[in-house]
Design a protein around this nucleic acid. Sequence first.
RNA 1: GGGCCUGUAGCUCAGGUGGUUAGAGCGCGCCCCUGAUAAGGGCGAGGUCGGAUGUUCGAGUCAUCCCAGGCCCA
Length: 934
Amino acid sequence: MPEILKLKDTLNLPRTDFPMKANLPQSEPRQLAEWEAQRTYERVLEARAGAPVYVFHDGPPYPTGHIHLGTALNKILKDMVVRSKSHAGFRAGFIPGWDCHGLPIETQVEKEMGGRGSADPVAFRKKCRAYASKYVDAHRVQFKRLGIFARWDQPYLTMDPHYEAVIADTFLTVLERGYVYRGRKPVYWCIYDRTALAEAEVEYKDHTSPSVWAKYPVAPGAPAGMPGPDVAAVVWTTTPWTFPQIRALAFHATLDYGVFETSAGPLLLAVGAVPQFAAATGITVGKELGRWKGRALEGLKFRHPFLDTTFPAVLGDYVTTAEGSGIVHTAPGHGVDDFNTGQRYGLETYAPLDDDGRFLEGLPEYKGKTIFEANPFIVGLLRARGALLGEGKLSHRYPHCWRCHRPVIYRATEQWFIGIEKNDLRGRTLEAIRGVKWMPSWGLERMHSMVAERPDWCISRQRYWGVPIVIFYCDACGERLEDVSKLRHAIPFFEKEGADAWYAHSPEELLPPGTKCRCGAARWRRETDILDVWFDSGSSHMAVLTGGDSRWPADMYLEGPDQYRGWFHSSLLLGMAARGGAPYREVLTHAWTLDEHGRPMSKSLGNVVLPSDICDKYGADLLRLWVASQDYTADVRMSERVMSQLSDAYRKIRNTFRFALSNLHGYDPARDALAPGEMLELDRWMLERTADLAARCARWYESYEFHRVFHAVHDYCVVDLSAFYFDVLKDRLYTFAPRNSARRSAQTAVEKIARALASLLAPLSVFTAEEVWKYMPRRPNDPASVHITLFPRPQELATGLPEARIRKWEELAGVREAVLKALEAKRIAKEINASLEARVTLRAGGALGGVLREFERELPALFIVSQVALAAPAGGAPGGDGAGGLVVEVERARGAKCERCWNYSERVGENSEWPTVCERCVAALQEITGARIA
RNA sequence: GGGCCUGUAGCUCAGGUGGUUAGAGCGCGCCCCUGAUAAGGGCGAGGUCGGAUGUUCGAGUCAUCCCAGGCCCA
């Protein structure tokens, strides 16, 4: 018994303190504290001093209570991009930002103060600022928890004084260059928040609208051959409140319109719309009395059903018969198509509403009511005048305010715009889009068509929490001060005090002393509108990319697909207008996060998964692995199943590292590493394969295909290392004398492989890679953190093993598979259990037979069996081509089981000093004891 | 309604320019080991490549249409 124990003591069994169980939720916060204490983010940059810079520019999220899974996906991907560039040798920093102005915070502050009340703008803005700061802090804590390396102590905030000054200055620049104009146009308007909204500030949701069919009699005096006063045109609308604002009926030039005899009298409508009209109203439609092309009806006059006015038929190519009557109710003050048509025909842009959406004029039935209140009263008016043909409800997608989630309307108001046609901004932008690398490539077309079709940009908002539009009007004559150099006088005030200066100082203080209007007066009134928040964030490249490690333009912007109309878009337009170029060279887009059934996450569905919950349950590294495992160019799904699968994958990778580390106990690379030429060929082959893996991973990192890296590394751990190489290596590592060169050869390979994998994985699982690094044997000049390392260079891993030898090892791996199958058959037949109980006989001729003879001594270890014999091909056939002729025979191994290495040998017992041990172990023991003596 | 995107085994992914019985890992089932042990190893069963038409000697790969889902817009 003591003898056995002593024998076991002569083995080199695995030994490490690297824990098998990760306990990430507990260990990660400690690691974060350590990185912070050691300023690792800064150390990484210092280590790349003098290296070429890679400029990533962070898109600023809106600071809210907690981050969502999509936010985490976004930030983690950004982190992976920046880190992978750093490991690839670039100096790559990450300056995080937040988009701090805007309505949600303003609304909350209002709520807290019980309405905007009489608070002066400066005090109000101070409150908003405090609120935003609070949320930024909360956000930052959560982002840090995800293991994101960034300049967290110096982020950029759109509410920073300097940033606010840049925004105001950018506005003046685009004003100076002639892009800005003041105009009256229909814009999205929220009557609850009493402000204009940008296209990017509306969201489409289901909404139930009234659906109204009404008729407009033809006005007397129509030319001969046209419908007469007994005929009425049919219109359909879901916005009855626009009846008072109607200024035309729009027809399509090439559609057929007919007058039909109906139970409601002779009616004019598109021929193709008759069925849906009849179905919706229950009106019986009889014979057709006449037919005209829409073009022929242009100019025909109609009477208003309840106002004393007439208006014309006009043409519009947006008219269809898909819905309604094929005749579109046209109110130029309340629709984009309507407005454009109105401009062509010289119609009035009539929008008699106040900011709350109340009618300022009109009949008593609706005057003073809000538009939504007025709907039923206007329908009542139609009914009373006999103009109502049908009425119902329609549930459809309708634009809503993304701040308050209530329906918005189009309303023509006086606003500030950036003209997309000014200085050919559109054409030049379209040109610049072609010079940007869009990933995936469909981004080019998407951005291109968006810019090709977009209207002018409404940049003004009637709010307080933002950057004021730096414009002054003469108090005496109302003229606008046009001298931009005088307007710029306000910028230093912004630099110093932030945009609050606009409200804290008098116009005369903000302007150069003695600034006079052309009319001679010197008293000024300031503009009260502020800029669209998309103008704020769209200016970020000018506020942040100011040189050094942050040159302009950025190498990359990386956001979700919604940013084609958001930040990618506003940044591009401002880049073109203010700097004459696109602010980015590459734009990478990720897709959406969905639940396990492929549905978007929403509170109402109750399927929201929070990053913080994942971190608490699994750890940030697993959340990061989730990001890394999926092809983010398509929608990514989150579920329990996916996370548990990732846990398994993680454990496998972790244990593979653990095995490597536990077999490097006492190994010092500087002292013990073997030169490639001294290594065993199997070990050299594995280093070649690792070099190949490193090369492929480097390419995948370059194309930001993180999921390929993850899968390749995982498969390598599972298939090549755990199931093959490490399994084969156990015998050599455990039973050979510690300093035996064959064992050192294995350790040399294992150390290089583990170190390579740690670096390759470092951008993905940042915590675990660092943990592994701590347990790795140190080499001279090793950095303190794995995140400072460079990716393994294939040429450093490769050992110069000739291609022909590699081919042979691959052939042997194929033979091994055949042997394993044969072993399994014997296991099922209960003839053997452990593979070491087997003796394998291989019969192969030809080239394969030659290879087997060449590697005969390696084969038992490779198959993990005790004995391998080579024999002539079955049936004496010459065995033409390689593996085709291979026959594997398995029988029980001969001899006795060695007590020490468990291999079977006929020579156990030959040595009297160690009678229970095989000849290999005798040699090992002599080597060990000899070394002890020496 | 329009534009764009996605749809390969239960899950996560591979499958240049169309060409043998569509691959991998995980999971699952069965088995082995007990010197990586709340580990490790082996074998095996899983797919009409969303559907339908075409083009072709031949299509997961090309075309058209349809279905489902997503993003954006009307």
